[in-house]
Design a protein around this nucleic acid. Sequence first.
DNA 1: TTGCCAGATTATCATATAACCATTCAGTAA
DNA 2: TTACTGAATGGTTATATGATAATCTGGCAA
Lengths: 114, 114
Amino acid sequence: MSTVRKNRLSPGQLGVVARVFGVLAEPSRLMLLQALRDGPLTVTELVAASRMKQANVSKHLAVLHQHHLVKRERAGITIRYEIADPMIFSLCNLVCCKMERDTKKAAAIFAAEI
Amino acid sequence: MSTVRKNRLSPGQLGVVARVFGVLAEPSRLMLLQALRDGPLTVTELVAASRMKQANVSKHLAVLHQHHLVKRERAGITIRYEIADPMIFSLCNLVCCKMERDTKKAAAIFAAEI
DNA sequence: TTGCCAGATTATCATATAACCATTCAGTAA
DNA sequence: TTACTGAATGGTTATATGATAATCTGGCAA
């Protein structure tokens, strides 16, 4: 594992990585992922949870599924989506912690100026 | 710290997180970050390393700087950029490891692309 | 079969952004 | 001051992506 840790990535690999980040670069999709954090949900439930139109939810779910971030499973007439890779939450936590650091830093600077 | 670990994020916070992912969703910017991995570089050096036009490099650096992913420092007539937060590499490693896992499942498709 | 419902797909519009070129700004030296 | 150079900025074009409405599909029940 981790042949990537030392070596540089090729332009092609960078493209793939960028693509994954691009999938996460949408608040609507992050909201859907967050809604799925406690377990699988159907599309209808996600529509209710996100206050987005059904077509919109469906499209975002398609993008997430395409990049293997969610799994789908038929349950009778409905379809249940669930998180495919908990790594997503590690990613979000890293970014959130960074946000907190930046905020504290900004607050400290602000306080120092007064 | 990590008040974020349990709670849901507000739409506003999701927007900020998405924004950071959006900054990383560009192969050109990832390439610049990768080039900066071993230490600070000037804009000219980055232009050479990335094979991009100077204006393009400058704009991407501005985006990275705006989101506190790189720091800038004047050195006489030149400006040296450097990584502001090594967390970036943790992010990339997570995504790369995920790629490796996914690739094992569909090695043929990925190999064809390279 | 028909009707219904959950979900996917399509078409269209608007917005966002990257690449390129030319220009401008800022720092240094003569 | 002027000339030179590294870096930033503006404008334009092309492409990509998101939101919405309307339509289509596929499974289930009567």
